Structures are given as structure tokens and as C-alpha cells.
Simulated scan of single mutants.
Amino acid sequence: MIHQRKLAAFLSVMITVALSGCSGGGKTESHMHTVANMSMEPIKVELNWSPQQVTAGQKVTFEALVTQDGEPVNDAKEVLFEIRSNSNTDKKLEFTGESAGDGTYKAEGIVETAGEFTVTSHVTARTQHSMPSKKLVVQP
């Protein structure tokens, strides 16, 4: 009798678990449909700044143009500009990019010291991450 009760309780739990796994209401299917419609083409990031010739202490506008399949990406989750000194790798600046529309993200900042730097834009968009870098020479 005890074994029958344990078996009945076990079967009841198993049926409940099995049925709850089937009650997604199509959520899995709609999620799969969304993923299937997302382009597998990599995002492209063009990194620039203005002015092109930078002087120490001058305000600089860093810009990342983000595209996918030749179309602007306006829904990036994160755009971060990292400026790292080439002579002192511990020294770095970070500026958060804000959307300016048409796939363009901008941030303003000031590099206080002269020297050579590496600018890296960290862009996370559409389940992808891109980190293009360019050399920046800041004049005294």
C-alpha cells in the first residue's frame, strides 16, 4: 500500500512537470522566430574623432558609426570609447557613447596630456561585440 502511494505521488509529480514544460504558450516558437529573423551578418564599426589633429587639453568628439548589412544600427546596448596611453598602459580614459541617430554614437572628452594613445570603441549590439582600434597622437 505504501509503495502504491509513493508511486502515485511520483507519477503525479512527473505528469505535472511534463505538462508544465509544454505550457510555454508558443513563447519558445516566437523567440526562435525572432532569432531566425536576426541577421547573422557581423556588425561593422567605423571609429573616428574630431578634430582629426588633437592638442592636449582640447575637447574631442569620439564617434562610432555602427552598421549591419549596410543599414544603421540604432539599438546598440553599449558603446564605450577607451583611450589608453601607449607609454603607460595603466593610464586610460573611458567615455560612454550616446546615440546621435542614423547608427552614429558620440561621446565628448578631453585628453589632458600629449603622447600616443590607442582609441578602442567597444560596441555591443545585436548579440555581437566589436572592438576596432585606431592610433591617436595628441600634440602638446
Rank of each mutant, 00 (worst) to 15 (best):
T120G: 06
N86L: 15
G57E: 14
H3F: 13
Y105V: 08
N86P: 02
P72C: 09
E112W: 11
N88W: 10
C22V: 02
A36D: 12
F81E: 02
A8P: 01
G24P: 03
T89C: 00
L11M: 09
S30H: 04
G115F: 12
S121T: 13
S99Y: 08
Q53L: 06
L80T: 00
T28V: 10
T16M: 15
G25M: 07
E41Q: 08
E112T: 14
V35M: 14
K135Y: 06
V60Y: 00
K59R: 06
K59L: 03
V45M: 03
R84N: 10
I15W: 05
V60C: 03
K134W: 01
D69Y: 04
V73K: 02
A18D: 09
H122N: 09
A9I: 11
L65R: 12
K134I: 05
L65P: 02
H122G: 04
T127H: 13
A125L: 08
F62D: 02
S99D: 07
V54G: 00
V35A: 14
T113H: 14
A18N: 06
T34K: 14
A64N: 11
S50I: 03
N74K: 04
T96P: 01
I2V: 13
Q128Y: 07
V66K: 02
N86Q: 15
E82Y: 11
L11S: 07
T61N: 09
K6E: 05
M1T: 06
G103C: 11
E82N: 15
S130W: 05
T28P: 01
S39C: 03
E82R: 15
G24W: 06
F62L: 10
I2Q: 12
V79A: 01
T127N: 15
V45T: 10
V17D: 05
E29Q: 13
N86E: 13
D69S: 13
R126F: 08
G70H: 06
A114W: 03
K92T: 07
E94A: 15
F62P: 02
T113R: 15
H122P: 01
E82Q: 15
G109I: 06
K91A: 12
K44E: 13
V54P: 02
R84G: 10
E82M: 11
M131G: 07
Y105G: 06
N86F: 01
V54S: 00
Y105Q: 10
Y105R: 12
V45G: 07
F95S: 09
E108D: 15
R84C: 02
T67L: 01
I83V: 15
V123M: 08
T61F: 00
K77P: 04
P140I: 06
T89W: 09
P132Q: 10
T34A: 14
E41T: 10
E98G: 13
A76G: 00
C22K: 11
N37E: 14
M40F: 05
C22F: 06
K106A: 02
W49E: 01
Y105H: 07
N37S: 10
A8N: 08
K92E: 06
V137K: 09
Q139Y: 11
H129I: 13
T55H: 12
K106T: 08
W49H: 11
A107E: 08
T55N: 14
L136E: 04
V111Y: 03
L93K: 11
M14K: 10
E98T: 13
N74I: 02
V137R: 07
